[in-house]
Structure formats: C-alpha cells, structure tokens
Amino acid sequence: MEDRVVFEVSGLTKIYEMGEVKVHALRGVDLELFRGELVVLLGPSGSGKSTLLNILGGLDTATSGRVTYLGKDLTRANERELTEYRRFHVGFVFQFYNLIPSLSALENVAVVTEIAKEPMNPQDALALVGLSERLDHFPSQLSGGEQQRVAIARAIAKNPAVLLCDEPTGALDSATGVTVLEALERVNRELGTTTSIITHNMDIAGMADRVIHLSNGLISGIDTNAVKKSPKDLHW
C-alpha cells in the first residue's frame, strides 16, 4: 500500500490574513491520496477544499503541517521547485477554463507539451476528450464545454502524475458537465492518472473511488464507493 501513496498530508493548516481578520481555511487536515484513484472533494463554499487543492497543486503554501508528493516535502519547496513541480507533475483544470485566448485549441495544448518532459501528442490529447474536429478553433469560437475539454486535454497532455480539477463543471450546464466528466473519467481509467475533483455538487460524488467531505477547514468524513457510477448516469 505504501508505494501507492501519491500525496501524504498531515496536520495541514492554512490561515489567510485578510486585513485585520484571520480566516482559518484549513484547521489540521490529515489525508492520503493513492495512485490511480479518482477522488471527489466535496464540501460547501468556504469549507477549505480549494485551499487544499491549491496547496496540493503547488499554487499556495501552507501555514503549518506537511504535504509530501511521492515522498518529497512540498511545504519546504521554494518558488522555483514549485514551478518545476507544476510543470512536470501536475495537471490543472479550472472552473473558468483559463485557456490562452490568443492560441487555438491545439496550440493551447501545445503550450504545455512544449515544456513537458514526455508529453503526449497534442492531437491525441484532444482526441481523448473528443475534440479532434476543433483543433484550429480559438477559445472565443468554442462553447463552454468544449473549452473545458480543451483545458482537460491541456492538463493531461504532459502525462501528469496527478490531475487536479477545481469545480470543472461549475460554469457549465448539466448536459455539458456530463461530457466533461466523461472526459475526466476516461483519462483516469485509460491513463491511470490520480484525479482529484473539487465540487460542491453531491451528485458528482457518485463517479469517485473515494469521496472526501470537507467542512469548516476539516475533513468531516471519507466515503468509499463500492460501485462507481458512470458520468452518463449522473444528473443534477
């Protein structure tokens, strides 16, 4: 079991100082994420799930506690090491896609494969999310769902060890959301990428191996799904 651990989180706290107010976003989180699993982090707004994901992704630093990635201590990494970590090991998918508006779908993927170590072919990545026909379209010419699928292709094209998704369906309608989740599920299944999805949408939890509930900066429970649902069967 030990060698399957990708992330090991212990006693993680994060305090934001907003002017004179201190916000305790995380109050001592202990957690392990395993290779190849699909985890859904579930919780209401302000529960600390985004903060947790940002720290796991090397976008933010912890106030105290420890996070290791494949045995390496991320909490001690400096700016340069974190950049390298993001560059070679993590794929991100965001609520608002964050595509580069001046680059076409294909180029948005290439922007990552150009700097990665052993990337996929950008076309293959886009094929995986069902966008082979839209390679030369710019973000302004794509629908929200299509943009998000480009973002997923971009995230997986570097062959990352982990895929971190922050409300990937948050800006999409239900039907479009399902196609996006299908893409994520397929990546997880076919490539075995450890995938972590943040959502406040309970219905999505059904497609996970494990569901981690967060509230008020703490893990309030972890459920394991004996049977994973296919995204097609999810409705909200």
Binding site: R80, T83, R86, F92, N98, P101, V111, I115
Partner: peptide, 16 residues
C-alpha cells in the same frame, strides 16, 4: 494578468 497567471499555474517560470 489572467492569461499569464494561468501559464504560471501550468508550470511556466517567471522568466518564461
């Protein structure tokens, strides 16, 4: 700044 921050998130360095 949004685009540039996105690139930073994707692993681009400050210099890049």
């Amino acid at each position: 700044s949004r685009e540039l921050a996105s690139l930073r998130v994707l692993g681009y360095t400050r210099a890049e």
